[in-house]
Amino acid sequence: MDFLTDWLTGWLKDLLIDGIMGNLGGLFDNVNASVGDVAAQVGTTPAAWNAGVFSLIQQLSETVILPIAGMVLTFVATYELIQMLLEKNNMHEVDVANIYKWMFKTAIAILILSNTFNIVMAVFDVSQSVISSASGLIQGSTDISADMLANLETTLEGMGVGELLGLFMQSILIQVCMFALNIIIFVIVYGRMLEIYLMTSLAPIPVATLSNRELGSMGQNYIKSLFAVGFQGLLILVCVTIYAVLVQGIATSGDPIGAVWGAMGYTVLLCFMLFKTGSIAKSIFGAH
């Protein structure tokens, strides 16, 4: 009878250990996959992310928004010319040099406005280049190998059936949290790209105000926002990578209970920080 009890206990322990290691191993594999997927998504340029959407946004910007921006630039240039003339004793004193200066400034503004889409894409190309370089350095240091899990499995083998059963239920909860985390990452990463497309579509209007000192704050803030959204991808990648490194430490600690609840805490922390990346990026670049 004791033999049968020992056999059932051993069989149940093996079953629970396999289940726990499967859940935790799946967690760590999911973390590695998330880091790789985030690196690929945030390191993709708007043109490469979705060619159809990119073409639509480009046509919208150049055929619908650009003419409106041309009207805005006309108003801004005319307003600036009138101000310049009124400054000189109500047009009684006209400085020809200022007229040439205004003409040159307006010509530069027209040139910039006509190439707004290319300039905006250049901003994102710079940010994506930085992100791609960073992702190449990051992904190699976050892999969790099978050897790292061996110590964890050894610890599980020394635990009782009751402890293993409780730990198995907790590991299932972690799997649910990881599913929620993947949804949050999807929303933030894809939402960022949609924000890039939306900002790009209206780019000519704020750019048209850059040449004026009084109205130029609109365009300046827009440029800052472009850099903020672009480099938000780097912050997202850094957050996910820090999470992966922390989880890697859990995998090598050999403490299964600590691994489960540590992963839970890190997951909640990552979700919070992912939502903060946008505001952090804007504060760094002074956008509002």
Results as ranks from 00 to 15, higher is better:
151 N>A: 12
111 L>Y: 13
19 G>E: 03
198 L>H: 05
142 T>G: 01
52 G>Q: 15
171 S>F: 06
160 G>M: 11
60 L>W: 04
3 F>P: 00
105 K>I: 00
55 S>C: 03
261 W>G: 12
104 F>E: 09
241 T>Y: 01
153 E>K: 15
208 A>N: 04
273 M>R: 05
136 G>N: 06
80 E>A: 08
84 M>W: 04
116 T>C: 14
161 V>R: 05
53 V>H: 12
276 K>Q: 14
274 L>C: 04
278 G>V: 03
194 L>D: 07
260 V>N: 04
89 N>A: 12
48 A>G: 05
61 S>E: 15
183 I>H: 01
58 Q>A: 13
183 I>W: 07
88 K>R: 14
87 E>Y: 11
234 L>V: 05
172 I>Y: 09
180 A>K: 07
284 I>H: 00
147 D>Q: 14
11 W>H: 13
4 L>W: 09
276 K>H: 01
5 T>A: 11
52 G>N: 15
16 L>K: 02
279 S>N: 09
85 L>C: 08
197 Y>H: 14
126 V>N: 14
102 W>L: 07
86 L>S: 12
70 G>T: 13
194 L>Q: 14
72 V>T: 14
11 W>G: 13
108 I>P: 01
222 Y>N: 04
238 V>N: 03
119 I>A: 08
95 D>Q: 12
287 A>D: 05
286 G>Y: 06
52 G>E: 15
252 T>I: 10
41 Q>E: 09
152 L>T: 04
285 F>P: 03
279 S>V: 11
134 A>P: 02
183 I>L: 11
123 V>L: 11
118 N>W: 09
97 A>T: 10
249 G>F: 08
208 A>E: 03
216 G>F: 04
268 V>F: 13
138 I>K: 01
30 N>W: 02
10 G>F: 02
4 L>T: 04
251 A>P: 08
204 P>D: 10
199 M>L: 15
180 A>E: 03
238 V>S: 05
284 I>R: 03
69 A>K: 03
92 H>V: 03
269 L>T: 04
7 W>V: 10
91 M>D: 05
196 I>E: 03
204 P>H: 05
129 S>G: 15
156 L>F: 09
189 V>Y: 02
47 A>H: 05
225 S>W: 00
277 T>G: 02
74 T>F: 11
251 A>S: 12
204 P>V: 11
287 A>V: 00
153 E>Y: 07
78 T>H: 05
1 M>Y: 09
216 G>H: 01
220 Q>Y: 02
111 L>H: 10
64 V>W: 12
241 T>D: 06
99 I>C: 08
43 G>T: 06
103 M>V: 12
209 T>M: 12
23 N>W: 08
136 G>T: 05
179 F>T: 08
13 K>Q: 11
85 L>M: 15
139 Q>P: 04
198 L>K: 14
226 L>I: 04
124 F>W: 13
211 S>D: 00
260 V>P: 00
251 A>D: 06
210 L>A: 02
29 D>A: 01
